[in-house]
Structure formats: structure tokens, C-alpha cells
Amino acid sequence: MSRRGWATLVLHLGNLLPAAPVALVGASLVGALWGEQGGDGVLWKPGGAYLLETLRLLAPTGGALAWMAPWYLLLWVVTGVVPQGLALGLLGARADEAPWGRGWRAVPALVVVLGASLLGRVVALALCLLAARALGASLSRFSDPVRFWGLAPLVLIALGLLGVIQALQDLAAAAAVRREERGPGALLTALEVLHRRPWAALGPWAWRAALAWGLLGGAALVGELGGGALLRQGALLAACWLRVGWWCRALGLIDGAPDPRERPPTSER
């Protein structure tokens, strides 16, 4: 298997690993409830009698565990840098070096990049919400649908901002792995790449992200009608493949960017 294939597998497993304990506990609880009635196929019977009963009976358990959900999600986010680092390490390692080492070494920088990215997202969303409030107030004399559609461009702007931040984060992660830069340096490199070649960076990210989310959304909906498991798991894998493809591109963009450490001093120009 190619390095890209291995990287896809690492990313895919990295995504599934934190989900596995939750899914397994859920599946075991459902098995305990309906194991004597043919298993969890009954959950999806028309009318939802068993599904609603499951939710009703498990609601106290879910409520008792709810307090840990935010912490678990935080852990999920932070530990996500490990498969990211390993996958990028596989893609970015030179031919003469071990594929894992580079990725491991980049993990601290990736955590910094992730923190900056999350901060950027919070700021972007807060700005969009403030703008929505102001715009909503100015549209108050219009009917409800006009107000709604008047705010729609802001949703697109917010999605666009989140996309740019995600692309920037990936470029910085690529710099952290390929050039073994620390977090701030990787972020500066990513900004420089985005500044010099914005469309070359955002275009490949955007179409892959759109395709991946289209696949995932489609699998979520169509999967309920038939062939579900294959479709859903296939879509997850395909989304990882697309993401890894973008990372390959990001590594190329990083390679094409001037390395500040190799840049000659200004006085010698």
C-alpha cells in the first residue's frame, strides 16, 4: 500500500478510535434491552416504538454520563493531533527516514496550531454573531422570511471563514511536520503560503471538503434507505482519502514556500 493509503488508514482509525468506546457501550446497552427480541433491528421499525422506548429507558443513563461529554469531546479534539501528525509524517517523511518519527516529533507544535485554530474559530463565530444581531435589528421591519434570508449571507461568510481557518490550520500542520517548525513558526509559514498563493491553497481544500461533506451527508441520508453500513463506512473512508489528498497538496505548497531559516539576510541582498 502507498504511503497515502497508509495515511488514510491512520486518519480513519484515528477518527474511529475515540468513537468506538461510546458506540460499543451504546450497542451493548441496546443489546441488553432488545437482545431477546431479535437485536437492534427493532429500533428502526415504522412508528419508532422501540427506538423511543430505548431513548426513554436509557435517558437516565445518558443524563448521568452527560457531565463528562464536554471533557470527552475536548480529549477527542486534543488527541486528534496524534493521527494527524502520524498521517502527515507518513506523507511528509523523506525516503531515507523512518515514517513515524517526524510525525511524533511534530505533535507539540500541532497542539499549538490546533489551539490557535480553535481560538480563531471562536473569534470568527463571535464576529459573525455580532454582525447577525446588528443586521437582524436593521431588518426588523421586514417579514420573518426576509429577515431569515437577509441573514443567510452571514451564514455563508461564517462557513467561509471557518473554511479558511481550517485550510490555514492544515497548512501550518504540514509546515510543522515537513519543516519541523514550532507552532508559531508553522502558523507564520501557513499565513505566508496563503498570502502568496491563496487560490492554490483554498481551491484544492474547498472542493475536497465540499465533496467529503457531500459524501458524508448523502451517506447519512441515503444509508438509511438501504445498503447503509457499506455506504456509511465507505463515505467515512473516502472523506479521509480526500483529506489526505489535500494534505499532500499542502505539503507541496509548503515545499514551494521560502524557508525563513534559509532566507538570506536583507543586508546581503
Partner: peptide, 28 residues
Amino acid sequence: SRERTRVGRATLERGLFWGGLLGRLLAP
């Protein structure tokens, strides 16, 4: 029943999918 399913396989698969989706959304 004399036959008992211990783990809901469809639930496990769906859980992995939605968890994977969440991971795609949350993880870096």
C-alpha cells in the same frame, strides 16, 4: 428467547459512523 444478541451490531456501526463524523468535525 433462546437466542440472545449481546451487542446491537447496527447500533455499533451507526455509532461508529456518527462518531467518525463527529471526529471529522472536531478533530484537527
